[in-house]
């Protein structure tokens, strides 16, 4: 089973990933004669309190030049009791495994755009939509976590 083990730092369980445009969007860009934006290396915080994966708009709008293709209701501590309609984007996400092992690949996955992430030291919250495909071992005593998939 591909996996990796990383240290838990002051900001929590952080991992590196690659975020790019989805395969269908890449095909549409090619058909329109437009360049496909390079995949962007991002830092993500594993967050079991997030039901879906969230990405900072600086990555979605600036680096990947995406436009939304969806909208979902989202509740956060900042929205109070009333959920907000929030933009949803289709992306491709790759989480590398140890050298030589198959990475965790999502060719087309919906994510939502959330501000204030970069200010907290990362670009993404890796939510339960991704963790549902994984085995997560959080070893707080050893200050490490392992993600297998």
């Amino acid at each position: 089973m591909p996996h990796f083990t990383l240290s838990i730092g002051p900001n929590g369980p952080l991992l590196g990933a690659l975020l790019g445009v989805s395969k269908p969007r890449a095909d549409a860009l090619t058909a329109a004669g437009q360049p496909i934006p390079q995949a962007v290396p991002i830092t993500g915080l594993i967050d079991t309190g997030a039901s879906c994966t969230c990405i900072d708009p600086s990555v979605l709008l600036t680096s990947l030049s995406l436009t939304p293709t969806g909208s979902v209701l989202v509740n956060t501590p900042s929205t109070g009791a009333t959920p907000h309609d929030t933009e949803q984007f289709d992306v491709a996400l790759v989480i590398p495994a140890t050298a030589g092992a198959t990475p965790l690949l999502f060719p087309t996955i919906p994510v939502i755009s959330s501000e204030l992430l970069v200010h907290q030291g990362f670009h993404a919250l890796i939510g339960r939509d991704i963790l549902d495909r994984c085995l997560l071992v959080y070893d707080g005593a050893a200050k490490t976590f392992t993600l297998a998939f």
């Binding site: 969230c54 509740n75 956060t76 959920p83 309609d85 755009s113 501000e115």
Partner: peptide, 27 residues
């Protein structure tokens, strides 16, 4: 690359939940 919407159909939409303090970008 024209705008189009993909959305799941539910009579009552179940909201996503994020326990961390973030600011979801309004549609």
């Amino acid at each position: 690359l024209e705008p189009f919407l993909v959305k799941q159909i539910h009579a009552i939409e179940q909201a996503q939940f994020i326990s961390r303090f973030v600011d979801p970008c309004a549609t």
